[in-house]
Design a protein around this nucleic acid. Structure first.
Lengths: 203, 203
DNA sequence: ATAATGAATGATTTCTTGATTATTCATTAT
DNA sequence: ATAATGAATAATCAAGAAATCATTCATTAT
């Protein structure tokens, strides 16, 4: 056996399983795909999958985490962007929305997977929200240091921004409006958050 | 027959039915109470209820509307209150939250009813949101005229405020945090909305 | 040792069927 | 006319049986 092989557990095999599961989940949904089918796609027995994953839910969790990580990666780019902090706040809301909307519209089965996981494994969603919260905090700190913002408690404001963006994060709501309408709403919320209601002289 | 009686359909009878239905729905839930039971409570046959209501769902709709109207009444008092417009914006979010939370915590059956109605009769919820939106618009206009606010498009800002308060309006979310935590969040969102992120000199 | 399997088991889902229930209507009171 | 009813019907619900499925484990390959 070559040194490069034979990690434990085999990375290649578990990736094969994940890929097969993803294809099935995408096409038929989480609950309608069986371990036997995933196994058959990988030319192995169902029992063998358990050498690489604790159970079916754990496969779902891994794939859902991957999905949410994609969103976080895109949001990280937004936060670290070169535009004004204000523009990045708006963009943050818009990108969050687009991820939710597109998953809902184009990959309804995956959206269903994420929701199913969210129900049974609250920690997965909570971790995702925590990660997003951290990104917003970073964005606010950056806005503070370049003089655009003067946020007293970035942690607290970040949480408030996340709360204010709830409508854009929940697949369940996506049927209520068109994507365009949601984008318009997100822009308005961003404007509200940035400028505030209280009157003030022009700087 | 006296002139004072005999409207069509009899107002008293339909109110009796609504009251009986409310008692049943509160105790056993919408789906678990039968038309026969409601009728028995009113000393009439099930068939007779259909002289006063189109069907069971319509009874649910009427009761749900009543529930939501209570919230609107409370919010109207807030909007027409004597405090600063800023304080009223915060109070508006807090009162919305408390209605959602308390219904969820103390009248879970009624909360279930409202959710069931919301699923099958989107118009009921939409009308409620429209009514709240109008109240917020009124509040913003008032803030504008007393010099506290300088909102360019109150209609649009009102919608944005409603969107930002989504987390506080949906019973489904109530299990996520304690009421105290939600109140703290609502206050922070209000602060964010009022002051905004963008830095500015002290007026 | 590591990888993989088939057979066994308990849990879950699906299916079937009988019972309840919402709703209608022809008929009876007032 | 208006109010109310009991019987009829079609839709929905629920309990239990049958089948499928996730998971385990003793055993076999490499």
């Amino acid at each position: 056996m070559a040194l490069s092989e034979n990690f434990s557990p085999s990375e290649t095999t578990s990736d094969t399983i994940l890929a097969a599961a993803m294809r099935r989940f995408e096409q038929f949904g989480y609950s309608k795909t069986t371990m036997a089918e995933i196994a058959a796609d990988c030319d192995m027995s169902a029992a063998n999958i358990y050498r690489y994953f604790e159970n079916k839910l754990e496969i779902g969790v891994r794939l859902a985490r991957g999905c949410l990580a994609q969103e976080c990666a895109a949001l990280t780019k937004v936060v670290d962007g070169a535009t004004s902090a204000a523009a990045r706040v708006e963009e943050f809301l818009l990108v969050s929305l687009r991820f939710t909307y597109q998953r809902w519209a184009e990959q309804p089965r995956i959206s269903e997977l994420v929701e199913a996981i969210a129900r049974e494994r609250t920690d997965v969603v909570q971790e995702h929200l925590r990660a997003k919260n951290e990104l917003v905090t970073r964005l606010l700190l950056d806005g503070n240091s370049n003089g655009e913002f003067s946020v007293e408690d970035p942690q607290r404001s970040a949480e408030a921004i996340m709360v204010a963006g709830t409508l854009f994060d929940v697949p369940l709501f996506m049927h209520l409006h068109t994507c365009e309408k949601f984008e318009s709403m997100a822009k308005n919320v961003a404007g509200l958050i940035l400028r505030g209601l209280v009157s003030r002289p022009i700087v």
